[in-house]
């Protein structure tokens, strides 16, 4: 599981890569939480550009981060969701909870404006 972290204008950007299943999510969750602590960022953008497979464990990861970011009074957005993942996103109703944008810039803007 490849992961790239960046702080852009006070927002933590995490670019995910590989396959987002239960195995990968276990460590990813801790890594993202740790980065949120260290950077003291309140906003979070998750980029799915490098994700070619995701199951409901990925949904758990998204909802879990949404909860922890919201608890800190911050905002969160997702971007670069492959057509491959669209069906699972739609089924989950995640579009109604977390904004999903086309690219990183729009996602950053969304998180900052909010």
């Amino acid at each position: 599981m490849a992961i790239e972290r960046d702080v852009v204008g006070g927002v933590l950007v995490v670019r995910l890569g590989g396959e987002l299943d239960h195995h990968a999510v276990e460590t990813l969750r801790d890594e993202i939480e740790q980065s949120l602590e260290e950077t003291r960022c309140r906003g979070l953008v998750l980029s799915f550009q490098g994700i070619d497979f995701m199951d409901s464990s990925g949904l758990g990861l998204i909802l879990g981060r949404y909860r922890s970011v919201s608890a800190r009074g911050g905002k969160m957005a997702l971007c670069k969701v492959n057509p491959n993942l669209r069906k699972i996103f739609e089924l989950s109703g995640i579009y109604k909870i977390v904004p999903v944008l086309d690219d990183e810039l729009s996602a950053l803007r969304m998180v900052k404006e909010a």
């Binding site: 199951d55 409901s56 758990g60 909802l63 069906k87 089924l91």
Partner: peptide
């Protein structure tokens, strides 16, 4: 464990 409870629903749909 941060489960989403969507596994069986996804199976049914896929």
């Amino acid at each position: 464990l941060e489960r989403s409870g969507m596994g069986l629903t996804i199976m049914e749909n896929f």
